[in-house]
C-alpha cells in the first residue's frame, strides 16, 4: 500500500475540510491577533519587541489550533473509521502533520503582514527569509504538535494539557525563531540558532511518528 498516497490523501482531506469551514484558522488567527495587540500595547510596540511578540502569539495560536488535528475527527465520528483503514498509522501522522504545517505557515504569513503594519518593521524586503525561518520552526511545532494532539485525545481536561505540554517542549522553537527573526530584521548574525531549530526538527521527526503509533494503538 502506498504510504505517500495515503498521507497525501489525509493531508488533502484535512486542508479541504479546513478550507470549507475555516474554523481552525479563524480561531487561531483571532487569538494571535489579540495577543499581538495586547502585548504590543502592554510591552511596547518598538521594532525590537516585534519578533518576540510574534512568536509568543504563534505559540499560543498553536496551542489552540493543534487539538483540532484530532478533535476534528472525533467531532465527525470519523476517527474510528480512519483508524480501521488498513495500513500504517504513520501515514496518518504525516498527512495530518503536513496539513498542520500548511495551516500554521499561512497563519505566519498573515501575522508577518500584521507585524509590518503594527510594528513598523520592514517585513517586505526580508519576507522570504522570514517565512523560511518561520517554516523551519513550524515544522518542529507541527511534528510535536501532531503527536500531542493524539496524546491528549482520550485524556480529561485536554484543553488544559495542550499548553502545559506544547509550550515547554516546543520552547527551543519559540526561542530559536525569535532570535532568528530578530537577526533577519536587524541584519545581525544568526549564530547557532539554525542548528538549534534543525536539531529539534530532526529529533522530533525521528521520534514522534513512532510514538504516534504507540499513542494511537487502540481505537
Amino acid at each position: 500500500m502506498n504510504g505517500f498516497l495515503r498521507a497525501a490523501a489525509v493531508a488533502r482531506k484535512d486542508l479541504r475540510v479546513e478550507w470549507r469551514g475555516r474554523q481552525t484558522i479563524t480561531a487561531t488567527g483571532m487569538v494571535a491577533l489579540l495577543m499581538i495587540l495586547l502585548l504590543g500595547f502592554v510591552v511596547g510596540s518598538e521594532p525590537a519587541r516585534a519578533a518576540a511578540i510574534l512568536w509568543v502569539a504563534m505559540g499560543f495560536a498553536a496551542v489552540l489550533g493543534i487539538p483540532r488535528v484530532t478533535q476534528g475527527e472525533v467531532d465527525q465520528q470519523a476517527l474510528e473509521t480512519l483508524l480501521l483503514y488498513p495500513g500504517s498509522r504513520e501515514h496518518l501522522f504525516w498527512g495530518k502533520c503536513a496539513a498542520l504545517t500548511v495551516m500554521l505557515s499561512a497563519l505566519l504569513v498573515a501575522l508577518l503582514v500584521l507585524l509590518g503594519v503594527l510594528f513598523g518593521v520592514d517585513v517586505w524586503d526580508h519576507g522570504g527569509a522570514l517565512v523560511g525561518v518561520g517554516v523551519l520552526g513550524i515544522v518542529g511545532l507541527s511534528v510535536i504538535g501532531t503527536l500531542l494532539a493524539a496524546l491528549v485525545l482520550h485524556v480529561r481536561g485536554r484543553e488544559l494539557l495542550m499548553p502545559l505540554l506544547l509550550l515547554p517542549l516546543a520552547l527551543p522553537v519559540v526561542l530559536g525563531c525569535v532570535r532568528l527573526t530578530e537577526a533577519i530584521l536587524t541584519g545581525t548574525a544568526a549564530g547557532l540558532w539554525p542548528a538549534v531549530l534543525v536539531s529539534f526538527d530532526v529529533v522530533s521527526v525521528l521520534v514522534c511518528p513512532i510514538l504516534f503509533e504507540v499513542v494511537m494503538d487502540e481505537v
Binding site: M1, N2, L5, R6, A9, V10, K13, R16, V17, R20, G21, Q76, Q77, A78, E80, T81, L82, Y85, P86, G87
Partner: peptide
C-alpha cells in the same frame, strides 16, 4: 457501523474518493 464515518463539509464524491485512497485503491 452506526455512524457514517464521513466528513460533513466534503461532498459525497470527495468522501468516497478519500475512502478509496485510504483503502489503497486510489
Amino acid at each position: 457501523g452506526t455512524s457514517a464515518g464521513a466528513y460533513d463539509l466534503l461532498t459525497v464524491r470527495e468522501n468516497l474518493a478519500f475512502a478509496a485512497a485510504m483503502r489503497g485503491r486510489p
